[in-house]
Design a protein around this nucleic acid. Structure first.
Length: 739
DNA sequence: ATAGGGTTAG
């Protein structure tokens, strides 16, 4: 919803229209010398001197002369809006031009809301109506703020005041509707412009690109040819950006040659757009060739190159570019942080953030924080995550939806659902991503009912759910065994909410049905799918077969899965699991051999635990940790103690055939999650919960052991596995053993 | 009497 409230727009009466006090009567002689001096000012100090002279000579009370002063103080390179506004307030009778200047300056300032305030004041106080110059400025402010209702209000006013055919205003409206994501309305404005100019086309193309409709942008670009409209540099920047999004290097190369053939002026921005296209299409080589030829480079050019290497995982080159850039602004740091974070290297991302803090060469911005928080989420690194939250508060960052979403995600994935809820409740503005993150948080903590509750609250708040919201809510239903609710939501998706179910939603449904033991229904559901079945759908069925020990269906699911994705190690592992559970060891070793022959490796189990801000990682049977000896001693102690209260190791969770019984036990005890928990017990205070993150699904035996430890050692254990959270407390797990 | 709309990195 719109955060800005805007009064009903009516034109106020115009009391001063007939008044004789209006000071536009040229009583004052212009003072050409003084006025031309304004244009030569290079600092606020000089302007203030002229201001003083103007006051002495009475020139300041001439609206025209005052307007020149306002223009210089509000729009020049050394401008000070605050000063401009103070001067403005002293002008007895500002004219429309002067009002427009102030509105314009505020529209492109960091606080565009103020241009609305000045606009409203103008409606009341100025003796003239807003004109064709006023609207582009306020509409621009509305675009900046994505203030969709306010902008529509302006559109209405434009029509009422018969300015509805001004191409400047209409172009700004295209831009406005585009930035609000309302592409249909933007297009409606566009097609109704009788004499479109190149800016009209550019605005519409850019709107399509930014709304992720690259094809439509290309269509429009081609239509320009037909309509004999010559594209310019801005047009090319737009289509190149679309090209990067589509990862279509062929078309991108063609566009570059088009620019050359048609003699389109290449400036720095256009060069940067070409660089970006090459980088996004994965050709850092092409980018490098262009980069070396560019006559002028700015920080964007350097950062784009850095990003090009980093996103390919060429970190050595990326760091070389980083060191070579004239100055590393925050964007450069962000490129490094996000590439690490997005390439599954969250530890490295945190390390870069740490370096940034020490170097103090740039101030973290919102992008930095979002990337770093995401790294914390991946790691389950609660301490750094919490630290960043404090930092956000201390630095006075306003929580926008992006940051809010990241914080909720971080707290949820670090096991602190209460904190996530606290952040959620503390913010006024909640968009679909904020709601979806909260629902995902509830889902991974097994709070299915609450998730459904939030989903209906979301409807009441009039926030439209999207595909991600549905993935999360279906996942919540699945993890809590809420089959009826999940089924209903699935069937409402398209009919009630207009969200067409994608393959992720089908996978969720298969998981939900299968997990709850409805294997037959799950299979029928797959057969009736109207869209192409992917590996993930069969994977969900396979997982359910393992849970319920259905060998036959598992074999079918597995063969279907491998047909679609022959190198899917998860499929082999799951099927081995199923064979192992029913003690078909010959099948287990057959699969093992098959995997070896195909060179497919099981993803090794890995658990990490954060102690005092340091993340420790454990692999299966790991003894690389400095405290390894102590850890194994502790583990022996734990097992002995648990056995004395009736724990029986569950050997069916082993993957390989181990003949001797005690060997089996040992193999179980080598599981990474047990090592991490044992390390947690010896290295953290008894009051502290143990927070472990595992890359795979938690093993059944480890799950039982964690429950028993939570009781026997009176310790909370928070274990996050690949799919969800297990919150062990006093002998119970939050998943209620349904996972 | 002065003026306006569309552009690139994360």
């Amino acid at each position: 919803m719109d955060a800005l409230s805007f009064p009903v727009i009516t034109f106020p009466p115009n009391p001063k229209l007939t008044s004789s006090t209006v000071n536009n009567d040229h009583r004052f002689q212009n003072h050409p010398v003084l006025l031309s001096l304004i244009d030569h000012c290079t600092s606020i100090k000089q302007l203030k001197q002229i201001h003083a002279q103007m006051l002495r000579k009475g020139l300041f009370f001439d609206p025209f002369s005052a307007s020149r002063l306002i223009t210089a103080s509000a729009l020049s390179s050394f401008s000070s809006l605050e000063y401009a506004h103070q001067v403005f307030d002293q002008i007895p009778q500002p004219n429309l031009y002067t009002w427009n200047t102030l509105i314009r300056a505020y529209a492109s300032s960091s606080d565009p809301v103020r241009s609305f305030q000045v606009f409203l004041q103008m409606l009341q106080q100025c003796c003239e109506y807003p004109n064709k110059f006023t609207y582009p400025f306020v509409v621009k402010a509305a675009s900046e703020l994505k203030a969709s209702l306010v902008g529509r209000g302006f559109h209405g006013m434009v029509i009422k005041s018969s300015l509805g055919s001004d191409v400047f205003i209409l172009n700004s409206l295209i831009h406005f509707y585009g930035s609000c994501g309302d592409l249909d309305l933007a297009y409606r404005v566009f097609i109704n412009i009788p004499r479109k100019d190149v800016v009209s086309w550019n605005s519409m193309i850019t709107a399509f690109v930014q709304g992720n409709c690259a094809e439509e942008a290309f269509d429009l670009f081609r239509a320009m040819e037909v309509e004999n409209m010559k594209p310019n540099d801005v047009t090319m920047v737009g289509v190149l950006s679309a090209c990067g999004k589509k990862v279509d290097i062929e078309f991108g190369r063609w566009l570059c040659s088009y620019i050359e053939r048609n003699g389109i002026a290449v400036n720095l921005t256009l060069n940067n757009a070409m660089l970006d296209m090459y980088v996004k299409c994965g050709s850092v080589e092409d980018a490098k060739l262009l980069f070396d030829k560019m006559p002028e480079k700015d920080v964007v050019s350097w950062t784009t190159m850095l990003d090009g290497y980093a996103r390919l995982g060429k970190y050595e080159e990326a760091h070389r570019v980083f060191d070579a850039m004239p100055n590393q602004d925050i964007a450069a740091w962000n490129a490094l942080i996000s590439s690490y974070e997005q390439n599954g290297k969250p530890k490295e991302a945190l390390a870069v953030f740490h370096k940034l803090q020490i170097s103090k060469s740039a101030k973290p911005d919102e992008v930095t924080l979002v990337g770093t928080l995401s790294a914390c989420s991946q790691l389950g690194a609660f301490d750094p995550g919490r630290w960043i939250h404090v930092y956000i508060k201390r630095q006075g960052f306003k929580l926008n939806c992006h940051l809010t979403t990241s914080l909720i995600d971080m707290y949820a994935k670090c096991g602190n659902l209460e904190k996530a809820l606290e952040v959620f409740n503390s913010v006024e503005r909640k968009d679909v991503y904020v709601w979806s993150a909260m629902i995902a948080g509830l889902a991974m903590h097994g709070r299915g009912r609450a998730a459904i509750d939030f989903f209906s609250k979301m409807q009441k708040a009039k926030v439209k759910p999207n595909a991600v919201t549905f993935t999360n809510i279906l996942c919540a239903c699945s993890h809590s065994g809420l089959v009826e609710e999940g089924r209903n939501l699935f069937y409402q998706m398209e009919q009630v909410y207009g969200v067409v179910p994608g393959v992720k939603h089908y996978s969720c449904m298969v998981d939900m049905l299968g997990r709850s033991g409805r294997l037959k229904e799950a299979m029928e559901f797959i057969e009736k799918m109207p869209i192409a079945r992917t590996a993930s759908v069969w994977g969900a069925l396979l997982g359910a077969c393992r849970l319920h020990g259905n060998v036959e269906l598992a074999e079918h699911a597995c063969s279907q899965l491998l047909e679609l994705d022959p190198r899917n190690h998860g499929a082999y592992v799951l099927l081995s699991n199923i064979y192992a559970k029913s003690e078909k060891w010959d099948q287990v070793s057959r699969l093992r051999k098959l995997m070896m022959d195909c060179g497919i490796k099981k993803e090794p189990g890995c658990s990490s635990i954060e102690v005092n801000g340091i993340v420790h990682e454990f692999l299966v049977g790991d003894n690389s940790h400095p405290l390894s000896k102590d850890i194994y001693t502790k583990l022996d102690e734990i097992v002995a103690r648990l056995k004395s209260i009736g724990y029986v190791p569950n050997k069916s969770h082993l993957l390989q055939l181990v003949e001797e019984d005690d060997m089996k036990e040992q193999a179980l005890n080598l599981h990474s999650e047990k090592l991490a928990i044992a390390f947690g017990l010896i290295s953290t205070a008894p009051s502290q919960p143990i927070r472990v993150v595992k890359n795979l699904r938690v093993c059944g035996d480890c799950h039982s052991v964690a429950k028993l430890i939570s009781k026997t050692y009176d310790r909370e254990i928070l274990l996050r596995d690949r799919y969800r959270f297990h919150h062990f407390k006093a002998g119970h797990c939050s998943c209620m053993d349904y996972w």
